[in-house]
Simulated scan of single mutants.
Amino acid sequence: MRAVRWPDVEGKGNAHVPESERDRRVRYLRAWAQAIGGGVREDDAAAVVRRVFAVQAQDATAARLGIRARSRAVDGEAVRVAYEDDRSIVRGWFMRGTLHTVPAPDVRWLLRLLGPRLLRAGERRYRELELDEALRERADDLLKRAVTTHGPLTRAELTERLAPLGVPPTGQAAFHLIRHAALRGILVHGPERAEGEYAGEATFVLLDDWLLDDWLPDAGAAFPEDAAAELARRYLKAYAPADAADFAAWAGLPAGVARTAWRALADAGASAEYAGLTVPARRATQDADETDTPDVRLLPAYDNYFTGYRTRELSVPAAHEKRVWPGGGVLRPTVTVDGLAVATWSRQVTKEAADVRVEPFAPLSREVRDGLAEETAAVSRFLRPE
């Protein structure tokens, strides 16, 4: 293994690094931070989520695959246990108003920071759907009573419960009311329905009931004094090297709020400079080991590694960007080598097997093909265990 030396706190030694070498090093260190490079893998699902802070989760299967890609031999059952039995990770609407899986102890302060902003941002859509404040409050109360009485309910079942308020069963009104209750800290995603008409679908539960006592704050002690700065610190740990614009794009915070939070890290001595970007201060004198063997990972659709920065120029070759982002908000499953996209992939799952098809951007080296064979076999086992 060869070591990649972090610069000292002053960033000395970086001025003469060639641009291509600088980009390669930044990309490698980002992949290392995200546990998709440098041979880094975490032991369990909760450890993965703690490391990356938030796994993109608008597609539940993709979220599980994102955890798999960053872990050692974690199977689908282990991910389910983390969500449903240990309840150490929680799925909900957080950064940018998008579904993410986050560590359970962080749910409440994240909602306190982001929830009101997202609700204000949704006012125009509420008006378009004729969901005035009084109706939203009645819906919050009705949804809370429904889940209290009947236990975990799917989106379709909650939509049925909203009918007495005049909410149509089709369209987006019911979804936005359910999301409103979640952003207010009333509902959160719970277990998947095990059987019946809605087998395999996510359910919603009461947040206060779902979070275990271990995750409840003691007299507010679990709430950071400056939540925006805390979010910046978590982001920097999981995505560095990065800058304030990257943080703002990832978090969905206003640029001014993001810049203030970013400066707070520097003022507190919690960050340092690296090649014109920022890293956690404690990494400024640490080594990050870079392996001689290419580190190949199959990342799922919408993976947070690709959505965590303002631009994707370091992670996806410009000539192949459309193959990863074809348009319409689609972000395809992607094969990376030390953080660089080299292919897209797709899956076909049947009762008999899970087949993985890879479409390389260019011919792959034998070492990469060997790593790819291991990864595709691991994904197949994960999707269709024997």
Rank of each mutant, 00 (worst) to 15 (best):
A219C: 07
G220C: 12
G220Q: 12
G220P: 06
A221N: 10
A221H: 13
A221D: 14
A221P: 03
A222C: 13
F223G: 03
F223I: 10
F223D: 15
P224S: 08
E225H: 12
E225Y: 08
D226L: 02
D226I: 01
D226E: 13
D226P: 02
A227T: 09
A227R: 11
A227S: 12
A228W: 01
A228G: 06
A229C: 14
A229Q: 12
E230M: 12
E230L: 10
E230G: 11
L231C: 12
L231S: 05
R233P: 00
R233D: 08
Y235T: 02
Y235L: 04
Y235G: 01
L236W: 04
L236N: 02
L236V: 13
L236P: 01
L236F: 07
K237I: 11
K237F: 13
K237D: 11
A238P: 05
A238C: 15
Y239K: 13
Y239N: 13
Y239T: 07
Y239H: 13
A240E: 05
A240N: 09
A240W: 03
P241F: 07
P241W: 06
P241C: 12
D243C: 10
D243P: 06
D243A: 11
D243H: 11
A244V: 06
A245M: 09
D246A: 11
D246R: 08
D246H: 07
D246F: 06
F247G: 00
F247E: 00
F247S: 00
A248S: 14
A249V: 10
A249Q: 07
W250H: 11
W250S: 05
W250I: 11
A251G: 06
A251L: 04
G252I: 05
G252T: 08
L253S: 02
L253N: 03
P254T: 08
P254V: 10
A255P: 06
A255E: 08
G256C: 04
G256T: 06
G256V: 03
V257K: 01
A258F: 02
R259V: 13
T260M: 04
T260W: 01
A261M: 02
W262Q: 01
W262R: 01
W262A: 00
A264Y: 04
A264K: 07
A264H: 09
A264V: 05
A264W: 02
L265G: 00
L265Y: 01
A266Y: 07
A266W: 09
A266I: 06
D267P: 04
A268S: 13
G269Y: 03
G269W: 04
G269Q: 08
A270M: 13
A270T: 06
A270K: 15
A270R: 12
S271K: 03
S271A: 12
S271G: 14
S271Y: 00
A272R: 02
A272Q: 03
E273R: 10
E273D: 12
E273P: 04
Y274H: 14
Y274S: 11
Y274E: 14
Y274L: 09
Y274D: 11
A275Y: 02
A275D: 14
L277F: 10
L277T: 01
L277Y: 04
T278F: 02
T278V: 14
T278A: 14
V279I: 13
V279D: 03
V279R: 02
V279N: 03
V279F: 04
V279E: 03
P280I: 05
P280G: 07
P280E: 05
P280D: 05
P280S: 05
A281S: 14
A281P: 07
A281E: 15
R282K: 14
R282S: 06
R283F: 12
R283W: 10
R283D: 12
R283K: 14
A284M: 14
A284D: 12
